[in-house]
Lab assay of single mutants.
Amino acid sequence: MFKRLMMVALLVIAPLSAATAADQTNPYKLMDEAAQKTFDRLKNEQPQIRANPDYLRTIVDQELLPYVQVKYAGALVLGQYYKSATPAQREAYFAAFREYLKQAYGQALAMYHGQTYQIAPEQPLGDKTIVPIRVTIIDPNGRPPVRLDFQWRKNSQTGNWQAYDMIAEGVSMITTKQNEWGTLLRTKGIDGLTAQLKSISQQKITLEEKK
């Protein structure tokens, strides 16, 4: 169930391209415009997507990853294993993690069937560096609404905000991946996880038929 919630949630996290980005210092504006741009692209490019579902990787690479804190999220997933990894191991892992996100997020976007969304009203940021933004996803086919909290983090150097995690039903996506990959990290280390991520990233994206 959580895996499905995570995939549905990713439908609204794909941010804007650099040329049309919203105010990078306001995570609420980023979330709002990102959702609108993403849904528009999914709707307008269905012919290309249906002809070649792996085209979704391109959308992810162009529109999402430049505005997601990939390395920060990847380091959180590694936890204690990050500090013990060599620079070469980290570089290989982050490259594999990025390719994994292209496949995983692309597969999530393949679930698009006309969903709509509501974003919580903007709250004062103050001096906060981590801000959760509640998004409610509404399914046109009558499924119950899904309420999610996207975690946005302020870059201490640039002042810009980027998304790095999502919490559904009190469970963090980062925590879920830590639990899912924990045994592999304990037995085969970061190299074993890197190899698995490379394998997963090679899987073809498949479209979910409308139910």
Rank of each mutant, 00 (worst) to 15 (best):
V146A: 10
M31I: 08
K83F: 09
T176D: 14
A85L: 04
D127A: 01
K37D: 06
Y67P: 05
I200C: 07
I200V: 08
K43C: 00
I174S: 02
E122V: 11
W181L: 07
Y82Q: 15
R143E: 13
S84G: 04
N160D: 10
Y100P: 09
T158C: 14
T25R: 10
Y82W: 01
R41T: 12
N155R: 09
A85Y: 15
Q80A: 11
T116A: 08
V171I: 10
A21C: 02
Q203F: 11
D191V: 08
G182R: 09
D191Q: 06
L207E: 14
R186C: 14
Q46Y: 01
A9W: 15
A19G: 05
E209V: 11
L64F: 14
E180N: 05
R186K: 13
A19D: 00
P53V: 06
Q89H: 01
M173S: 10
K128A: 06
G106S: 02
D61Q: 02
M6E: 09
K177R: 10
S156M: 14
T129S: 07
D61A: 02
P87T: 05
Q24D: 06
G74K: 15
Y81P: 03
K29I: 12
G126L: 14
S84F: 05
M1P: 06
I167R: 02
N141Y: 00
M6I: 04
Y93D: 02
A168K: 01
A73C: 07
Q115S: 13
A195P: 07
E99T: 09
M6Q: 08
Q202C: 10
I205M: 01
T86E: 12
A19H: 04
K210D: 04
L109D: 00
K3F: 08
Q115A: 04
Q24K: 14
M166Y: 09
P15K: 09
I13R: 03
S17Y: 14
D32A: 04
S199F: 15
L185Y: 15
A9G: 09
Q118N: 12
V12D: 12
G192N: 03
Q107S: 09
K198A: 12
I167H: 13
K102P: 13
I205Y: 14
G170Y: 01
P144M: 13
M166A: 15
L193Y: 07
L76P: 05
V60L: 06
T194Q: 09
V60K: 07
R134Q: 14
L207K: 06
F97L: 03
T136S: 05
A96H: 07
G182T: 10
T58N: 03
G192P: 05
M111T: 10
K211F: 00
R90F: 12
I59V: 11
I190F: 12
G114H: 13
I13Y: 09
V70F: 12
D54N: 00
E63D: 00
T129D: 06
E180L: 08
R186A: 12
L30T: 03
Q69F: 15
K128W: 08
Y112R: 06
Q46A: 12
F2C: 09
T86M: 07
E208Y: 15
A51D: 02
T20E: 15
K177G: 07
F94G: 10
F2T: 05
I59A: 07
D127C: 15
Q62K: 05
R134I: 00
A110H: 14
F94N: 01
P144K: 11
V70N: 14
E99W: 00
L11T: 11
V12Q: 10
V146D: 04
Y81F: 11
L193Q: 06
G142R: 10
K204W: 11
L193M: 13
L10H: 00
Q115D: 13
E122A: 05
D23F: 02
G192L: 06
L185M: 03
A35Y: 13
K188E: 12
G170K: 04
V12I: 03
T183D: 14
I190C: 11
P124A: 06
A95R: 13
T38S: 04
Y28A: 07
L207F: 05
N141V: 06
T58V: 00
W152C: 03
F150G: 05
W161P: 12
A73R: 13
A104G: 09
R153M: 10
L125H: 09
G79N: 15
L5V: 08
G189Q: 03
D127P: 01
N44V: 02
P27F: 13
I59R: 08
Q46D: 15
A9L: 01
A88Y: 03
R4P: 05
R147M: 07
Q46G: 04
V77A: 05
E33I: 00
S84M: 11
Y93W: 15
T206M: 02
